[in-house]
Design a protein around this nucleic acid. Structure first.
Length: 315
DNA sequence: GATCACATCCGCCATG
DNA sequence: ATCATGGCGGATGTGA
């Protein structure tokens, strides 16, 4: 039996309990039960949710779980020193350790995410990156996995992560069957960027908003900092500065994101070759586009093609 | 995969 | 005095 432990804390998001559901269903679909599920907390006992209702839990020790998952909240959680200590003690003895939603903040506080890929709820991604600069935030991913350390994005993304874990443990057939039973995608198309909060963040001033519009309408031109500064009627230096404070990202970065975003949408809609998409979005070169995809989305353009037999998900 | 040229970013400082 | 601005240069990242 493999132990799956979900660590919760006062004020956790009840929806995150559903990360356990795929494992529960695996038990009923497999010939004999495979997983032992546990809800854990620092001291055990009743733990309140954001919903108001409470959930019972057990205290946990260093051998708590094969797979230890940390729940999230609707706000940014902080862990008590005691909980952090326990987590650090358990981590080396688990096969997988991971987080759900903003649980990534707690996981990151243990230091386990330093130098690793991780994701969290898109709404908190920017704060997360500022608070933990050593973590490679993949804000566009539904979930990430990096050497036994897993993180999932907001809310229901934890189900996608759990399905991927099941696919590793029991094979993709089983994982697929469970997805069907839960009435969710087995491999959900696209990233979180369908919400694209970072790009929708409306700049406050007209100058910068104009620049955004200019970029969107002129994807195929060069879009250098110099050129954009010109559009904004500012010097390159002042332009980068204002752009940065209003959008939270640098101009070149934003251009790249918008290009990748548009390209991804084109690819997902189908009917265009990768070359055509690269031309149309101003990448020109498919290799350059591929690298930008890997940088921002973590996956190459190919993986966003409409699903035929098996579109591959995060590796 | 290594290397080189170039763009970008950002701290610092002078200016208005 | 404070604040916005813009030039300079070095560290870093990216394309070829």
């Amino acid at each position: 039996m493999k132990k799956i432990g979900l660590v919760i804390f006062p004020g956790f998001q009840a929806l995150d309990l559903s990360v356990l559901t795929p494992f529960e269903l695996a038990n009923s679909l497999a010939p004999k039960p495979v997983y032992e599920l546990a809800i854990l907390s620092e001291t055990g006992g009743m733990v309140s949710t954001t919903m108001g209702v409470s959930v019972d839990s057990k205290a946990f020790g260093p051998d708590a779980a094969d797979t230890l998952l940390i729940g999230g909240s609707t706000s940014i959680p902080t862990a008590s020193p005691g909980l952090l200590k326990k987590l650090r003690a358990v981590a080396p003895r688990t096969r997988r350790i991971g987080s759900v939603c903003t649980g990534a903040f707690i996981l990151a506080e243990t230091g386990l995410l330093d130098g690793r890929q991780a994701t969290t709820h898109w709404y908190a991604a920017r704060d997360f990156q500022m608070q933990f600069p050593a973590v490679k935030v993949m804000e566009d991913r539904i979930y990430t996995t990096d050497e036994g350390i897993w993180t999932s994005a907001g809310m229901t993304a934890c189900i996608d992560m759990a399905l991927a874990m099941l696919s590793d443990d029991l094979g993709s057939e089983m994982s697929r069957a469970i997805a069907r039973k839960m009435v969710v995608y087995h491999q959900r198309p696209g990233g979180q960027s369908q919400f694209s909060a970072l790009l929708e963040l409306e700049p406050r001033s007209d100058r910068i908003r104009n620049v955004f519009n200019f970029i969107k309408r002129n994807l195929r031109s060069e879009l250098s900092v110099e050129q954009l500064a010109d559009v904004a009627h500012l010097s390159p230096r002042q332009f980068t500065r204002i752009f940065q404070t209003e959008t939270g990202q640098s101009p070149a970065r934003a251009v790249e994101r918008i290009r990748v975003e548009s390209a991804r949408i084109l690819i997902e809609s189908g009917g265009h070759t990768i070359e055509r998409v690269a031309e149309h979005t101003g990448f020109d070169d498919t290799e350059r586009m591929r690298r930008a995809f890997r940088r921002i989305l973590g996956q190459p353009p190919q993986s966003f093609k409409p699903i035929r037999s098996n579109g591959k998900m995060a590796a």
